[in-house]
């Protein structure tokens, strides 16, 4: 016993080092799965408070670009308004909004308060939380296109796992042909991502638009992801396609969180049918 104590005292530096490493590495490996993304509930609230102060200042610096982007979006939305279309029907009184239409997606505006693009597993925090109706597994988009998926929610803040996280995969398709594959980021360039599992007989061109497929209960169909920059057959019968992302993650500020009002219904059905 005395020898043991002496051994521990003599080697306390090394033993302490091993102990600390075990604690730290346990933390790392318990939390590297994004589904269980570590919810520092308390600390997120604290760091969220501080980060939102910092960002409210930084917002002023980006105000000009943000205004331009919002203006462009407004113009686009106004162009899509029913009032900007000419009624072409002969018979008057056709139903424009009636019970045949049910709202499926609900948009909640939010601001980004902390963000990174230079890590392998980046995270974003936004200034809306459970109080504002945000729940995990909601989709997040910006005016340019896809951003990511909500993982953790506290009362007033939420963390988002962006596309720039090597753990996230998104089902996406080529807009004009409809062929789909799974999109993921390879951890290198924050401006591009890879699309896998695209069969080799698919014809595609650089510049083709990639959008979300809508196969998951998270993203609506047709949210813009980016354009094809390059493609090549790598190993087997599948193309690997390099995508130029349309969202500039380095300048993310205004985002929209999308709530799928039919999500529970869809998941229930899939569970009953025994999908997995």
């Amino acid at each position: 016993m005395r020898n043991l104590i002496r051994f521990i005292l003599n080697n306390h530096f090394f033993i302490l080092f091993i102990l600390f490493e075990i604690v730290a590495l346990t933390l790392v490996f318990q939390n590297n799965n994004y589904q269980k993304a570590f919810v520092f509930n308390l600390s997120r609230n604290i760091s969220g408070q501080i980060n939102s102060r910092i960002f409210s200042f930084r917002q002023y610096l980006d105000l000009y670009q943000t205004n331009i982007a919002l203006e462009e979006e407004n113009v686009r939305l106004r162009n899509n308004l029913l009032s900007s279309y000419k009624q072409n029907m002969r018979s008057p009184g056709s139903a424009e909004f009636d019970s045949a239409w049910v709202q499926q997606y609900n948009f909640i505006p939010a601001r980004v308060i902390s963000n990174s693009v230079n890590k392998q597993n980046n995270f974003i925090s936004i200034n809306k939380g459970a109080v504002h109706g945000i729940k995990p597994d909601m989709a997040v988009i910006s005016h340019d296109g896809i951003v990511g998926v909500v993982t953790g929610v506290s009362d007033h803040f939420a963390s988002v796992i962006p596309l720039l996280n090597t753990d996230l995969r998104i089902s996406s398709k080529i807009k004009n042909t409809g062929y789909f594959g799974s999109l993921h980021w390879d951890g290198k360039d924050p401006g591009s991502a890879l699309l896998h599992e695209m069969p080799h007989h698919v014809t595609m061109n650089t510049g083709d638009t990639i959008v979300t497929s809508g196969f998951s209960a998270i993203f609506p169909e047709g949210i813009r992801i980016g354009t094809i920059a390059d493609f090549a057959i790598t190993g087997g019968n599948f193309y690997t396609v390099v995508i130029d992302l349309s969202t500039d993650f380095r300048r993310l500020n205004h985002v929209y969180v999308i709530e799928n009002l039919f999500r529970d219904e869809l998941l229930d059905l899939e569970r009953q049918e025994g999908y997995d």
């Binding site: 490493e21 604690v23 346990t26 933390l27 790392v28 939390n31 570590f38 997120r44 890590k119």
Partner: peptide
């Protein structure tokens, strides 16, 4: 940075 344990290790 929301990277539990990484910088600590």
């Amino acid at each position: 940075a929301q990277t539990p344990g990484l910088h600590a290790a």
